[in-house]
């Protein structure tokens, strides 16, 4: 479910090398998008963003702006070294490619065909879906040792409590070597029993705190 093809836009608005800056910007406005793949004879040869075009043209109010918008062509400003994704790529690979390349979109190609486009906001959507609130639940963060079976044991504890897991995410603990953090959304208003059992089983819950931090009084 977390593949590029699940999150990409399939209706791709494209331009050609000879498209003017004015036409390209009008397309961006009309479709509410910021990136346009550039095709020549059906082949993907570049990507242009509304930002590239804006920085290539004089600012609003400049008398030479209108002329420049008509004169400048997409081919003059486009990025030629295009990074692409494939539909079967995991979303996290697309995210990594975007932040490493400091780019906001990846055209998606299947063989020689342009089949979609995936943008950083599509990746954000996927992330929100992954950790989001799809049904009522409480959010717990538990530390777990980096060894096989620890997640299974946590899941066993929630199963024995008769509590469904809405979502679960496991990542390396930023501040501790050899440990991971599990972020669980549990379908219960009362996670106290599970918090206690997790602690006893060696998976301390980092949030919520077991007691109110009364010692923190001023």
């Amino acid at each position: 479910m977390l593949l590029v093809r699940d999150w990409m836009a399939r209706e791709v608005v494209t331009v050609e090398m000879g498209t003017t800056a004015a036409e390209a910007l009008a397309l961006c406005r009309k479709h509410g998008i910021r990136h346009l793949p550039v095709l020549e004879g059906g082949w993907l040869i570049g990507v242009i963003s509304d930002r590239d075009l804006r920085s290539a043209t004089p600012a609003l109010g400049d008398p030479s702006r209108a002329e420049a918008l008509e004169r400048i062509q997409v081919g003059d400003e486009m990025l030629r070294d295009v990074v692409t994704a494939r539909p079967e790529d995991p979303v996290e690979d697309a995210a990594a490619a975007m932040y490493k390349g400091k780019i906001g979109c990846l055209p998606v190609v299947d063989g020689d065909d342009l089949v979609g486009i995936v943008t950083s906001s599509d990746v954000m959507r996927a992330l929100a879906r992954l950790v989001g609130v799809h049904e009522p639940g409480s959010r717990l963060e538990a530390a777990l040792p980096d060894r096989p079976g620890s997640l299974a044991e946590i899941a066993g504890i929630t199963r024995d409590a008769g509590v469904n897991i809405v979502s679960v995410l496991v990542a390396p603990r930023p501040d501790g070597a050899g440990q991971r953090i599990a972020v669980l959304r549990l379908a219960t208003i009362d996670p106290r029993g599970i918090v206690e059992e997790l602690g006893e089983a060696g998976y301390p819950v980092l949030w919520p705190p077991a007691t109110h931090p009364g010692e923190g009084r001023a």
């Binding site: 609130v133 009522p136 639940g137 409480s138 959010r139 717990l140 959304r185 208003i189 949030w207 919520p208």
Partner: peptide, 9 residues
């Protein structure tokens, strides 16, 4: 806040 507390919304 629903950051941690039920129901999360």
């Amino acid at each position: 806040s629903g950051r941690h507390l039920f129901p999360g919304t």
